[in-house]
Design a binder for these strands. Structure first.
Lengths: 191, 191, 191, 191
DNA sequence: TATGAATGAGCCTTCATTCAT
DNA sequence: CATGAATGAAGGCTCATTCAT
């Protein structure tokens, strides 16, 4: 067998697992199926992660990390809070649509995490929320702090809801149109 | 022992299954656990539903039916589209918060259905969407038809997203506050 | 419900069971399937026979009884032992070919009986053997008694073996041709 | 525990299964019982064969293979067709009598196979028939080809029929005596 | 280190049978 | 008498995990 660094192996399993989970859910994603998707022996999966739960948390963290990195790398040209919200909304939907497996897997795993370690699941939610709030605080003219929190939450809720519609219909255009409507609402409200 | 009409028995199993699914998910809800929760022998569950899948679809339909019945029974005093939207948003959140098990189970089952019969899952989504559109069409002054669709979708998305926050935090007050913010957005937009 | 005499009901179940057993074997013939084939409620089957075992023995006896009745009703024109054997051989094959379900069910049930009550299974075998010997004893010129037994056994073995070929191939013509060959052997031997 | 090559393990299960099937039939031979007879955990059986059906076909093939190997290894001293038939008949009966479990299991499995894949069951029958015909063709003086087929079939039928008597009575001597009678018939016929 | 082999626990389902009406 | 309802026992199979090499 070609020697493959463990870290690379882990990554392969994570990616395979995301694909499988998107297809058959967290519980349907048996270690066998994941190993098969990764073209690796079953025992190797346990050699790398010990337990399925470990693998799931690794996926959970990786998905979170990826989104966070994306968010942090983002430089917004937009200035008003409405523009910022609009840009975040649109980009998030586009991102989700371009990576359907990861998108769906994230929902499945979030639900699983919510059942197995509620605190961690909330923490993940807060990571996004905090990033969102950070962007809104950079708005010009500035948004009063007491509105930053609530606007961020509503926008995040909107993202999740539209994402579910994306999962259901897979129709990116339709959802982007709704995002535009939502954006208009935000603009009307924030002005 | 006690002879009970099959229909009653079925209902008992459905209710037990909702509780179990809310706790451990669709796959974690084994027929054994469901039967135990229903204080009934395992074989009786299969006597009533034959397969676990049948039971799940029965739950799926029942949850849909319940929501639909509630919607149809609703008489709105509100007149403007913004008022209507606000009322629907608030009541839906309140409803979800007052029946956390059913609320969560519905999300789990929806995800399961989405994997097992996409068409049916979409149909369910459309049932809600249609009801929503029906309410909006009764608005005074009337909402242009081309906006009914998109507003309904955005509001529905908002409901789903806020519902996820409700599931995550279980904090009804918080979510209702966000619903109020969302309502204000709608009002600003629709005026 | 139309009142049906128990004896008639029993007969319906027996006939249904023969059909089902021929199709799926003794163990595959569940009481449910048999009841369904008989267009009767499952509980009625147990009302008539108490247990599945009882039903099987009833079938066993009925099949034996039918064959015995046929044998007893038979009047042979043939005179020599060879002619008698030939006639018995041919008629038995024809009979088996004309009632494939009963024929096959009899083999299945014989095997089952052989496992569950060897003595009874042997007794059945002896019933046929005795009938066969009776016919051979009527031969003219008479067959020495010490050859009656062995000829009867060989012919009976021949019947069983050819019957298995009939079950395998379902080709009556082919098997009848072999029966003719076997008949020629007997004739050559007995002369 | 002890690491054993899978092929060896498979063989152990096959042998255990033959014993169990001979005792309780194909359907009575549950995977649990077979595993117990093989002194192995149930899961190991499924690790080796995946399904019970696979195991049954493996047994089917193995029994066929064993018989075929025996037949192919056979060197007949006999010269006339009658002698050849006699030798085959006797040896087959002796073989069956010396391995009662395998003999009975083969009948049970043949019946099962006949229900589950008729074509395969027939093929097995033909394997024996062809071997038989091969031997008869080596007879000296040669048997006309048109009689090879029919004689082979009749002898094979005789074998099956006598085998059933062996299963019923377990009396090897008795059956061998009948084989002798049958042999005499063949001799009388073929001369 | 990697991985084929092995397994205890548990899942869904079905069966013959009995109960209650 | 007749039957829908109910069930303990068991069956085939799969799973995450561990063992042995």
């Amino acid at each position: 067998m070609a020697h493959i660094p463990t870290e690379v192996r882990r990554q392969q399993f994570i990616e395979a697992a995301i694909v499988v989970i998107a297809r058959v859910g967290v519980d349907g994603a048996t270690t066998r199926r994941i190993a098969e998707e990764a073209h690796a022996p079953l025992a190797t999966l346990h050699y790398c992660f010990q337990t399925k739960e470990n693998l799931l948390w690794a996926i959970f963290e990786q998905l979170e990390e990826t989104v966070r990195a994306d968010l942090e790398a983002k430089v917004l040209d937009a200035k008003t809070a409405a523009d910022i919200s609009a840009e975040l909304l649109n980009e998030t939907i586009r991102r989700a649509a371009s990576q359907p497996a990861a998108n769906r897997a994230q929902l499945e795993i979030w639900l699983w995490a919510e059942r197995n370690d509620q605190a961690l699941a909330r923490r993940q939610y807060d990571v996004y929320l905090d990033a969102w709030k950070g962007f809104l605080r950079a708005a010009e003219p500035p948004l009063p702090e007491d509105r930053v929190e609530t606007v961020a939450r509503v926008v995040l809720g909107l993202v999740d809801g539209l994402n579910m519609q994306l999962i259901t219909h897979g129709d990116e255009e339709l959802v982007l149109r709704e995002a535009a409507t939502a954006t208009a609402m935000l603009a009307a409200y924030l002005d």
